[in-house]
Nucleic acid binder design. Structure first.
Lengths: 138, 138
DNA sequence: TTATTAATCTACTAATTCTATAGGGTTTTA
DNA sequence: TAAAACCCTATAGAATTAGTAGATTAATAA
């Protein structure tokens, strides 16, 4: 299941991507428009800023704005920052690899071989979809 | 992330599918072979029995055995019983649909439209893979 | 027939982690 | 001076991953 953190993060990014001139938008504005708890959204936007997706402007008239073109922001990178690994098991993850404690031999694991397929198909979608693509559903 | 419950469940089912004559296998045997906590495995197998994948025989020489041919058990059905919905958001789920509280209009939701694609690609794999396919990774 | 043993079944408990916030105070800037 | 981001802490509830104790059932050996 996708966490609300990721869901809200994607919604906020889409909202920012839809701004005409990429002018700063306050947390409160996004919070109201997208029905997201203000304080929760605050922490999500902070994460996105620390990971280079957003920048912010303090004080009156301030807010958050995108640092890159929506067409250059892949969903895969957003997903990894907010949700974590795209793989469903760590032993299959490309960016967050970990060995499974219970598996003596990865190459023989039936679960692993299935999860590689799931990872590949999801990854293809997440890699080939950008924030600009998401804005088109309007 | 895939829960250990689902992971262990798939491993146990694969183990049973590999038995020559489909003779009952005790929980202890599977537990040792697959490095799974015995009591945890017990509850997982119980779930799989209650959902029609397995049957069991009590007493000496008893254990669990498959009720259907491995080639007739789709990973999609196993996944849904152990892990729950294949979709990452409830508003996209075919078998566990729920409306999202924060969305005024589903058809316009960017997250939803992305998650439909993810669901479809995963579903295709889970539907077209059977327990028999998993046994081949040996 | 009886006792033993090897199984599943049922119910309760518990530690740990994750999720989704809420609150309050600080700093910056128009 | 007001509006905004920033930063730190706490927390209720849920899910996960088991562990504990005992009841029930069935095959088999005495």
């Amino acid at each position: 299941m996708l966490s609300k953190k990721t869901k809200y993060g994607i919604k906020a990014l889409t909202f920012l991507a839809r701004q005409e001139d990429n002018a700063p938008v306050s947390i409160a504005t996004i919070s109201k428009s997208e029905n997201i708890s203000l304080k929760f959204l605050e922490s999500i936007l902070l994460t996105l800023r620390k990971n280079g997706f957003l920048s912010s402007k303090k004080g009156k008239g301030g807010g958050y704005y995108l640092l890159k073109e929506p067409s250059e922001i892949k969903m895969a990178s957003i997903y990894r920052v907010l949700e974590g690994p795209i793989s469903m098991v760590p032993c299959v993850s490309l960016n967050f690899y970990e060995k499974c404690a219970d598996c003596p031999d990865e190459n023989v694991c039936a679960v692993r071989n299935l999860m590689i397929q799931i990872r590949d198909s999801s990854l293809q979608i997440f890699k080939n979809t950008t924030l600009a693509d998401l804005c088109r559903y309007k």
